[in-house]
């Protein structure tokens, strides 16, 4: 008996070592699990085949998230997962008629986890980038990314659309997509001259310059913009998704039949104001 279990353990060890060898060999040491399991298409279809049936049969939808990103997802003092995404996925679960179980893990682990069927969906303020789209399927955007144009508290400028910012002194944080948008759409088109654009190391430095009147406008991601505006006595002149690409979507295993269902529910929520309610409840612009 003892001998048998000894041999068994050795076999397991061998299998693990061999497994480790074969899995690590191709390419360099993977920095993220996505790399470890990319090209693992063999598993993905199996996991997604009739995912809807699987979820309904289990009576529960396991949603993976990375709960350190308020107000989208975090853990409150009672240990409960809260935030915009959590409210949304629970509402979706209700529509599907299943319970929602939240599984917290690092953002980098989520894609591999959904591919391996460890979780059913990802809801983690995730943008549907083309690289990710190869690994998983994305639902329609449930929330577009928005930018904000901020001006001085007593600013009289009216910015009805992004192009109205042309010809004004404007600032953005160095290396951000907002800075790139200014260069591509205001400077390159000649609406604004290059010396009217200031580039800042940090967003709060730009906010100080707006407050002091050194520049008239700043363009920034809408989410930090609200508290930044409050703290510096600035005014939100325009909230827009015209300057941005790639909103937040829910991710599913490639080929999942659950996608159509969730797309439908999201569209419904957008139409009936559910999304709006969730957004307000979580203090989002």
């Amino acid at each position: 008996m003892k001998k048998v279990s000894g041999v068994l353990i050795l076999l397991v060890v061998t299998a693990m070592v061999l497994g480790a060898c074969t899995a690590v060999q191709p390419g360099a040491v993977p920095a993220a699990p996505a790399a470890t399991t990319s090209g693992d298409e063999a598993v993905a279809p199996a996991a997604s085949d009739g995912q809807m049936a699987k979820v309904k049969a289990a009576g529960k939808l396991v949603a993976g998230t990375s709960a350190d990103y308020p107000p989208y997802e975090s853990v409150d003092a009672d240990g409960k997962f809260v935030g915009y995404d959590m409210d949304l996925i629970r509402a979706i679960g209700e529509k599907l008629g299943v319970e929602v179980e939240i599984q917290d893990m690092p953002f980098d682990s989520l894609i591999a986890a959904v591919q391996q069927g460890k979780i059913d969906v990802i809801i983690a303020a995730m943008q549907a980038t083309p690289e990710r789209d190869e690994q998983v399927d994305f639902t329609i955007e449930y929330r577009p990314t928005k930018d904000a144009f901020l001006g001085k508290g007593d600013s009289t400028l009216t910015i009805a659309k992004p192009e109205d910012a042309g010809g004004k002194t404007i600032g953005a944080q160095t290396g951000t997509v907002q800075e790139k948008w200014i260069q591509d759409n205001l400077v390159a088109t000649g609406l604004t001259s290059a010396d009217q654009v200031s580039s800042y190391e940090r967003a709060d430095q730009a906010a100080l310059d707006v407050a002091s009147g050194r520049i008239e406008l700043m363009l920034i991601d809408a989410e930090p913009a609200i508290s930044l505006a409050e703290n510096n006595g600035l005014k939100v002149l325009l909230l827009t998704s015209d300057t941005t690409k790639g909103g937040k979507s829910i991710a599913l295993p490639n080929g999942s039949d659950l996608k159509a269902e969730i797309d439908k529910i999201i569209a419904e929520f957008q139409a009936d104001g559910t999304i709006q309610k969730i957004q307000e409840a979580n203090g989002l612009p």
Partner: peptide, 12 residues
């Protein structure tokens, strides 16, 4: 990496 492999490969 061992943890990922065990979780994502072995546990499949």
């Amino acid at each position: 990496v061992i943890i990922f492999i065990l979780f994502f490969v072995i546990s499949s």
